[in-house]
């Protein structure tokens, strides 16, 4: 398999990475180089082999239902490039308007 221009555009869109038109041909070549490399996996007989998600074999640890967190409003908002922190509307993260 190999990626064509539409595939690369689609993947870039899904990943929200803007690819200028002039960058697409080089990206196709690079990605296909990697895909060709990983294509070797098709040689392996994996019939009946369970996919391995992780190396850890223990069950999921669980925590108790306790609120154990101070109000971190200031810390959480302090790194944002744009946040409405002064207004009487409250303290929010701010992004360009989304039309639903």
């Amino acid at each position: 398999m190999s990626l064509n221009q539409d595939d690369v555009k689609k993947v870039a869109r899904l990943a929200r990475i803007k690819l200028p038109a002039e960058a697409i041909p080089a990206m196709i070549t690079e990605l296909n180089g990697i895909i060709k490399f990983v294509e070797q996996l098709q040689e392996v007989d994996t019939k009946g082999v369970e996919p391995m998600v992780r190396v850890v074999t223990m069950p999921l640890p669980m925590r108790d239902d306790r609120v154990d967190y101070p109000n971190l409003q200031r810390e959480v908002l302090s790194n944002a490039q744009e946040a409405d922190i002064a207004g009487n509307r409250g303290r929010y993260f701010v992004v360009p308007k989304v039309v639903e």
Binding site: R89, K97, V99, E100
Partner: peptide
């Protein structure tokens, strides 16, 4: 919230 500002969406987490 899309109605707190003319050109911005405000996000409360």
């Amino acid at each position: 919230s899309h109605d707190l500002h003319a050109t911005k969406t405000f996000v409360d987490l």
